[in-house]
Amino acid sequence: MKCIAYFSKAPLTKRGICLPIGLSDIVKASNRNAKSKMTGFLCYRQGYYFQVIEGPHEEVEQLALKISTDSRHSDPCIFINQRINKRCFTEWRVSVFDLIDQSQLFKQFIKIYKIEVANFTEQQKLGIQKFYDLKNLSYSKNYEGKNLRLIAWPDLNHISHSQIVIDLCVKLTKKSYPFNQLLDNEQFGTRDQVNAVLNQFQNLGILTVTEPDVLKKQEIGIVHTKTPSSFFGAIKKFLGMR
């Protein structure tokens, strides 16, 4: 058996945006690994791919050759390429969601390959850090007096569609909002419910928490007290919602 582990860069668009172009095709192709004798995982995060492939020697070699010529990534840096007696993973996993904590996969990998990891060059360590550093991030879960805003919507395929999740996403989409105003009249739910959803957003890395900007306080007040437009009411009526 053989193991290959590498990280590589997502390609740049003509305008220089680092984008995981074809990620869904890569996922589709990598699902074939789940059906074959391959184990390991594929991760994507902040413009980088990280893949560990274990399996029969010949098959891993063939796959690695194919991957090395795939134009959907560049600069592959292979840091493990060796025969193994035992697999590190029992199945094939894919974790391509940028802002999700992937540390469990890496803990398992690093536990088995601790000797190799200890001998990594600085460049190799930095490559892994993009994926593994999440475990060291400790978020402040105290939102009291802070302003909140989303930087992206969560993947609605992978998060509960509860009303409170949708309502908070809608509220935090266009402007930052003071935490305390979110609690007014329990419009979104109880303090604990609001906190739980916000914590979920923060764990996904899609929530920005900032100190209140004194100059913008007035503006936020206006947003909060804004009355619904007649267009809003008319659409609701059209949809039979009132």
Binding site: P20, L23, V27, N31, V96, F97, D155, N157, H158
Partner: peptide, 12 residues
């Protein structure tokens, strides 16, 4: 999973 991956591409 593939649909979610496409969503991820778009989100970036």
């Amino acid at each position: 999973l593939s649909i979610a991956a496409l969503g991820q591409e778009i989100r970036v």
